[in-house]
Design a protein around this nucleic acid. Sequence first.
DNA 1: ATGAAAGCGCTAACAC
DNA 2: GTGTTAGCGCTTTCAT
Lengths: 338, 338
Amino acid sequence: MSKSDVTLLAIANAAGVSQMTVSRALSNKPGVSRAKREEILRIAAEQGYVVNRTQQKSSSRRSHVIGLVTAELHNPFVSELVAGVGRAARTAGYELLVYSLVEPDQPPLPRVIKLMQQVIDGIIALLPYEHSYLEVLADARVPIITVDQYGRFVRFPSIAADSYAGACMAVRHLLGLGHKRIAFLTGDERLASAQDRHRAYLDTLTQAGIAIDPELVLAGNYSLSRGQSVVKSLLALKDRPTAVFAANDMSAIGVLAGLKEAGLRVPEEMSVIGFDDIPGAAQCHPALTTIRQPIQQMGRSAVNTLLALIAGLEAASPQIVLPTELVVRASTGVPRGG
Amino acid sequence: MSKSDVTLLAIANAAGVSQMTVSRALSNKPGVSRAKREEILRIAAEQGYVVNRTQQKSSSRRSHVIGLVTAELHNPFVSELVAGVGRAARTAGYELLVYSLVEPDQPPLPRVIKLMQQVIDGIIALLPYEHSYLEVLADARVPIITVDQYGRFVRFPSIAADSYAGACMAVRHLLGLGHKRIAFLTGDERLASAQDRHRAYLDTLTQAGIAIDPELVLAGNYSLSRGQSVVKSLLALKDRPTAVFAANDMSAIGVLAGLKEAGLRVPEEMSVIGFDDIPGAAQCHPALTTIRQPIQQMGRSAVNTLLALIAGLEAASPQIVLPTELVVRASTGVPRGG
DNA sequence: ATGAAAGCGCTAACAC
DNA sequence: GTGTTAGCGCTTTCAT
């Protein structure tokens, strides 16, 4: 007889009480005497009882399972965040299930959306490019939190690092080193984070009295390969920049690769700064100067906010913005003749 | 009234039949007249009915949902495989749920294991380093398939590409180009795939009459960073190799990066060949020659085999091995003075 | 070919 | 503080 047969009733019999008393004891609900409660907990532990979340959900509308949806499984930022969310969820007594959107810009099938409702209590959506399915879920009263946002679309509470402030720091760091011609490699501009970083770049330069040169703004998409391929356009400019601010670490690492390919030394001939501080940032050569997002903390915030929503509370603030931090490593330095 | 309220009973009422008839019609079971069946299907489609998988499971022991467990979310091979499995599952009328092992070498909590049993009909485990939890699941009669294997542990049916044959091809390709000193960067030797590739390297060289030089065998772990860092040991050898066979593409790309850093040209001064043919292999510089694993097909095989197991059939063959293919790109060439 | 009844494991609601 | 009842949505089993 495998453990999977341990049911509420089994424990009730073993303890000589009713099923309901066991349920109450196990869910920490009032209405059970201390003595009985302890006895029940002991027996349950002994027998290795674990609640059946799906039955729990079908009778109480709560499964204590949350879902995380993402289209970018292969993305270091995402996988870090998944880890953070997983830990936070578990700490709060929740399990985490991941729904992978196989087709990035395609909404999941109705079948899958339904499955989400049937299994989970709430959803954390990462980098929600396509979000029509979120509307469907919201209509079905599934609490939703997004990490980053699709444009300025604010129907759902979101968690994000302070992209604007972080990007300002990045640009100021380069300015402080003496750079005047600073290129910017954009992120995927459908996302709020990318828009914020872009705006911060423009604003900070302007505030520093430096005219914006549109040639120095290159269209990226947060990907390594784009970062790498964009380098030649950069080097083809008659008046080359002395530094590049890439909207995220992946594309910054791509830029590093492209520069290496072109034979330029970093930071002597070109400074590079990224954004995110993914694990790979510290390991590449030269180690990447970047803006750190508090990824673990973002995971925790996402979970806590979601749980509050599930509990029926309004999100304290619809948009939670977490501070970022400049991490200076080896990829930035004073410009030549600076 | 949201769609989520569409239940069997609702359709039964709308169709003027019993719940049971609707159930039968919708699950393609016999016992319903053609006319009624069609009528029911029409109404169900109209109302947007979707079965509640968890209820389905609690009464029939089948949810038509399968799970995929992996510790390496951030791994291009894994994410490709997840996509392939997702597509195949959906085609077969199953949904896919992903369980991410947050701590790579740590088994999931009993709570999570229990959740798996409660939600899914079977599990596909990717790169199962730690597999004690699989035993628990198997004891609970959850069908399991692994992709790749932990060592020579064959309790579970597995799907894998033919690592041995593929690695032989890789080495022969280099031999054919005229290389005599060929280094090997191992994979994570806990996995069967890594062991097979290693063995193939040794065997193929021996068969070609080339003595094995232990100095040319470098300990890797399938990671990019290890590939990169290992290059300096390679270049420090008094009698340098002219080619490197890396046990997978990620580490091969790392080797490429390390060589670029060291200023060596590929393939003029060093040939590099990988294994997997992940999407990144074609995009790096120079484009990587590699052994292609049929990742999509592996996903399909894994799903089909798992479904057979779920249906109560024995796996046709406990170990399914799929053929590999040499993909020649730009990272291999004749050795200098070859 | 169709339906009625029972049960899966759990909890909300209402007893006592 | 504790137990009983009913019900979630589905499928099994047994009638008809």
